[in-house]
């Protein structure tokens, strides 16, 4: 039983990291007022480019993760152009990008023959003697570098959002673009930058699933985690630390599913696989029932900004 618990808890960071990174990336772009539904698609781009880079480079998983981040950012420029420059409906734009990415990754990945091609992936770091501590050692000191990096990334994003001029301008653009515009802040520039920067993290989340988690790529492998990340952002009221908490909760659920089967407990496996999605809905219901309407939501979320409006 103790072994089961330790293995389970030690497995949580790996399952939680994609949710956490994707949600953080979405928080950055949504704080600028862009309703971002593109996560599922950009995670697919990250997942494919991550594995593709590993195959092409013959290893170097950390470089592969960086390439995946860049690739997602580049694709997100299309989303930025649709929502910020062309000001089309952000729901339609987000959905179109998701399907665009599904089609694109499926096409390129299959034509190039990357489907189901196993890779070495990213190894865990063992932090010296600390990892020998029974229980805690395995949980805290044998994890991969991205998990260790996630904490400073969260700290940094939170700090920039709350205590810097860039963060102040970004939040102003998301809350009241007309006021930010009148104050001399470029609404379009901040929104594009927020989408691109956030999408790098979303891409990292996708690449993490393929390069660190599964260690291979197949079509549509993100499996709805991008949508769960979108829900997580609403649940966290657009704040980084609660999003990390929510990600850990989903990590718990996702990590327990294979372990229950492995422990020989007989449960209907397909019903177990529903759990993350049902849990997401449950969390949204809880959020809707307990939180005051609109708290934390950027005031201009989903609204394009046009300055020269005749009143």
């Amino acid at each position: 039983m103790t072994d089961f618990l330790i293995n389970w808890i030690a497995g949580i960071p790996v399952t939680a990291a994609p949710y956490a990174l994707a949600a953080l990336g979405l928080i950055i772009s949504e704080r600028s007022g862009i309703l971002n539904l593109s996560a599922e698609g950009l995670m697919l781009v990250g997942a494919m480019t991550g594995v593709a880079s590993c195959i092409v480079l013959g290893g170097h998983p950390l470089i592969a993760l960086v390439i995946a981040m860049v690739a997602s950012s580049v694709v997100s420029l299309l989303f930025a152009m649709l929502t910020v420059v062309l000001r089309i409906n952000q729901v339609i734009a987000g959905l179109a990008i998701v399907f665009f990415c599904q089609g694109l990754t499926g096409l390129i990945g299959n034509l190039a023959g990357w489907q189901n091609h196993p890779i070495a992936g990213l190894d865990k770091w063992t932090i010296g003697p600390l990892s020998e501590i029974p229980g805690i050692g395995k949980i805290l000191f044998i994890q991969d570098p991205v998990v260790y990096l996630a904490i400073p990334i969260f700290y940094l994003v939170n700090r920039v959002l709350r205590f810097s001029m860039v963060g102040l301008n970004l939040r102003a653009v998301g809350e009241n673009p007309a006021a930010a515009d009148a104050a001399g802040v470029s609404v379009a520039l901040y929104r594009i930058a927020a989408i691109v920067a956030g999408s790098a993290l979303v891409g990292l989340a996708g690449a993490y699933i393929s390069v660190v988690g599964v260690k291979l790529w197949f079509t549509g492998m993100v499996g709805g985690r991008g949508w769960i990340a979108v829900a997580l952002v609403i649940f966290a009221r657009w704040a980084p630390w609660p999003a990390l908490g929510g990600a850990l909760l989903f990590g718990c659920i996702e990590a327990v599913i294979p372990r229950i089967a492995a422990a020989g407990i007989r449960v209907p496996q397909y019903l177990m696989l529903m759990l993350p999605y049902l849990a997401t809905i449950a969390v949204m219901v809880w959020a809707g029932a307990t939180q005051r309407g609109g708290a934390g939501e950027p005031g201009a979320l989903g609204q394009p900004h046009v300055r020269e409006e005749r009143r």
């Binding site: 205590f163 810097s164 001029m165 963060g167 102040l168 939040r171 102003a172 007309a178 006021a179």
Partner: peptide, 29 residues
């Protein structure tokens, strides 16, 4: 400078944040 009929203020921000937004200075603190 203009004070608009519909104020150009960011409602969830504090007074100081609003004024810093419109009159940016290097270094947040």
């Amino acid at each position: 400078g203009m004070v608009h009929q519909h104020f150009k203020l960011v409602k969830p921000f504090t007074v100081a944040e609003n004024i810093l937004l419109a009159n940016p200075r290097p270094g947040y603190r």
